[in-house]
Every structure is written in structure tokens, then in C-alpha cells.
Amino acid sequence: MSDAHAPLVEASATRTVPDAPLNPVIEAVDLNIYYGSFHAVYDVNLAYGKNEITAMIGPSGCGKSTVLRCLNRMNDLVASARVEGTVTYHGINIYDPKVDPIEVRRHIGMVFQKPNPFPKSIYDNVAYGPKVTGMKLESSLDEHVEWCLRKAALWDEVKDKLKESAFSLSGGQQQRLCIARAIATKPDVILMDEPCSALDPIATAAVEDLMVELRNDYTIIIVTHNMQQAARVSDRTAFFTARPDETTGNRTGLLVEFDKTTTIFSNPSDQRTEDYISGRFG
């Protein structure tokens, strides 16, 4: 362990990105999240750039998934959750009382940790969103389903068995189906909550390739435990950590550092970031 200072992860400079997100699609300003009296996330300020992949990394309990679920108001489903501060989507505060969370989620899609296809056919999984949200489609539903499956790089594998159960697919295919399902409502942001943690390395590689592909059309925000994954796919990385409260001992998550992924993994400015990415804690 003599060279612990050298980063274990070699950041792959996938492409040049500006120093700060130029057109932030989503911005969190002074975001504080509580569950009842428990302060889960403290004062997060983050901007997610258009057509960029932003990774949120950090040890367990640092609040990165909580922040992610706040970006499309999925945290509303937890009765005790309370949010302070603002989250703007194209300049509109999505926590404004006039904003309908249902509408927010149609624009900001989500992919979950475990592949969770509906117990329906492959076709119906993708068609579900447009059907229940009453979307006006420019093409026919069949064409739209094909478009989504092609986008998710799944079409060639499933085109002959669209009527079969989604559970006949492998785990990796199921997760790509979930991505196809998420883009079926034509969102412009996709939130991914550890999308590869239940997948094997080959399926993970397929999903990562897909993310890079989708970056051209979507803004992607991903929470991951896998630092190599963040280094491989993301343009920017936000590092979170957890700070124990002095009196209660509850751990509150906070944002330590947010920068270009190449910078985070090669030249972090905060000691805690460096300790984490070099594998010394977390």
C-alpha cells in the first residue's frame, strides 16, 4: 500500500467538457432533505449539464440516492420526506406548489437499481407509459415502441418476441427494457439509481455503452457505487460523504466536491475525495 496516493481508477477522458455545465437542465440550490426530524442531506448545490452524464458517488448513507429521487419528486412517495431549497428544471422550481409532480416525472424519467419490468409483455412494458400518460404520439404506437427499443439497443434481441413476458429476458436485457420504458414518455432527463448493481460485468458494459450513446439526446444523472463506472461513463462527478451529527450521531449527507470527472479522479481538491477514490475509506 505504498502508493496509496496514486488513484486506483484511471479516469478515461471520454471527451472534453467545459469547466462548468453550460446549460444546466436541472439545478439544485441549497437543497436540504429531511425524513421526519432526521436531516438526511445538507445544503447541496449542484448543476446538471445538458447532454452530459453526471455521476454521484460516495459511501453508503451519503444521501446520493436521496438527492437523485428528489430531482423528479419520487421522494414525495415517502410520507415523512420533506425538502427545503429549490430544484429547478429548465428554470422552473419543481417544488413550487403549482407544479404537478406527475408532470415532472413525465419529463424526468427514472431507472431503478433492480430491473423492475412490469409483469406484462415486452411490448406492453414500453407501451405502458405513452398509454397511461395519454401522450400524443407523432408515429403509431408500434413504431414508437420500436423506436424506444432501438434507442435502448434492445430491438434486435427482442423484435421476434415482443409478445413474450418481460421476465423471459436476462437481467441485463430487463434493465435495458427498463431504459426503453423510461424513454417511452419522451423525457429529456433520465435518472439512474445504481442501474448496474444487479448486473454481471458483460451486461454492465452493455448498459454503460447505452448510457454513452443516450447522452447525445438526453441528460443523464447516475448514482453509482462503482467508481470505475463513474470514471468510464460520466462527464462530471459529484462526490458525497456522510457526516455524523455531534449530538444525535445521525449521519447527514453532504456534497464534498463537484467537478469534471477527469479532475475528480486525477486531481481532486478535497482530501476526503482523494481518500475515497484512492480506496482509503468508504
Partner: peptide
Amino acid sequence: PPSIRHASMGMGATKWRTIWH
């Protein structure tokens, strides 16, 4: 499973449609 409800709500389905469908 709650994951089914979350998947449906996460794509902008209302609670009522999530329950019904």
C-alpha cells in the same frame, strides 16, 4: 412489489392509474 409501483409512478403515471393498471 413496491418496485412495480415505483416504476409506474416514476414514468409519470398517476396513483390511480398505477393501482388500476
